[in-house]
Simulated scan of single mutants.
Amino acid sequence: MERSMILYLSGPITGVDNYQEIFRTARGRLAAMGYKVINPAEMIGVLHEGASYEDFLDIDLALLAKADVLVQLPDWEGSRGANRELGFALGTDKIVVSLDSLLGGGDDHGPAGDL
């Protein structure tokens, strides 16, 4: 995969105490490999406390629209938001890949799964 592509991190946030560290670590590892990475977990501190779940998801999908690749973090399957992000990514012909595959193992999938 080209290092100039923009990656968007997708994974569980709700109910995960250390989600910020999980997202930050993934972003750091991918950035160290030369990728440009969007970390939606960083946006939570930007929105005011009265923001709804849908407000956050609207921003997440707008950020994902700017990306080329959806990167699925471990345990994404149980996340309602990550599943909606996957649907959006597939519906807009984005590449979908697991974090594990980018870091050296696992399978890629999606419209351009021949990474």
Results as ranks from 00 to 15, higher is better:
Gly110His: 12
Asp55Glu: 10
Pro12Leu: 11
Ala67Asn: 04
Asp107Val: 12
Glu42Asp: 14
Asp68Glu: 13
Glu77Cys: 01
Glu2Ala: 02
Tyr8Lys: 08
Asp114Thr: 13
Ser101Thr: 15
Gly81Thr: 03
Glu42Ala: 08
Leu63Pro: 00
Leu63Asn: 03
Ala65Lys: 00
Asp75Leu: 09
Glu21Ala: 13
Phe23Arg: 05
Val71Cys: 08
Val16Arg: 12
Trp76Thr: 11
Ala32Cys: 06
Leu9Pro: 06
Leu102His: 11
Ala26Met: 09
Asn83Thr: 00
Thr14Arg: 10
Gln72Thr: 09
Met1Glu: 13
Asp100Leu: 07
Ile44Pro: 00
Asp107Lys: 07
Ala26Cys: 09
Gly81Val: 02
Ile13Glu: 07
Gly81Ala: 14
Asp58Ile: 00
Glu85Val: 06
Leu73Phe: 06
Glu77Ala: 04
Gly106Ser: 10
Tyr8Cys: 09
Val97Glu: 07
His109Arg: 15
Pro111His: 12
Pro12Arg: 15
Arg3Met: 14
Phe23Asp: 03
Leu103Met: 15
Leu63Glu: 10
Ser79Gln: 08
Lys66Trp: 03
Gly34Val: 07
Gly91Met: 04
Leu47Pro: 01
Val46Lys: 09
Ala65Ile: 00
Ile95Glu: 14
Pro40Asn: 03
Phe88Asp: 07
His109Gly: 15
Ile44Leu: 09
Trp76Tyr: 15
Ile59Leu: 14
Ile13Val: 11
Leu103Lys: 06
Tyr19Ile: 08
Asp114Val: 07
Ala112Gly: 07
Asp55Ala: 02
Leu64Gly: 01
Leu30Tyr: 08
Trp76Ser: 05
Asn18Trp: 06
Tyr35Asn: 05
Pro111Leu: 10
Val97Tyr: 06
Tyr53Phe: 05
Leu115Thr: 07
Ala51Gly: 02
Val71Thr: 09
Asp107Glu: 15
Ile6His: 05
Phe56Met: 04
Gly45Ile: 01
His48Asn: 01
Gly105Asp: 10
Ala82Glu: 15
Thr14Pro: 00
Glu77Trp: 07
Thr25His: 07
Glu49Trp: 01
Asp108Lys: 14
Ala62Pro: 00
Ile44His: 03
Ser101Asn: 14
Leu47Ser: 02
Leu102Gln: 08
Gly113Gln: 11
Gly81Glu: 03
Leu7Pro: 04
Ala62Leu: 04
Leu64Glu: 02
Ala67Asp: 05
Ser10Met: 10
Trp76Met: 08
Ala26Trp: 10
Gln72His: 11
Ala89Met: 06
Phe23Ile: 05
Arg24Glu: 14
Val96Gly: 04
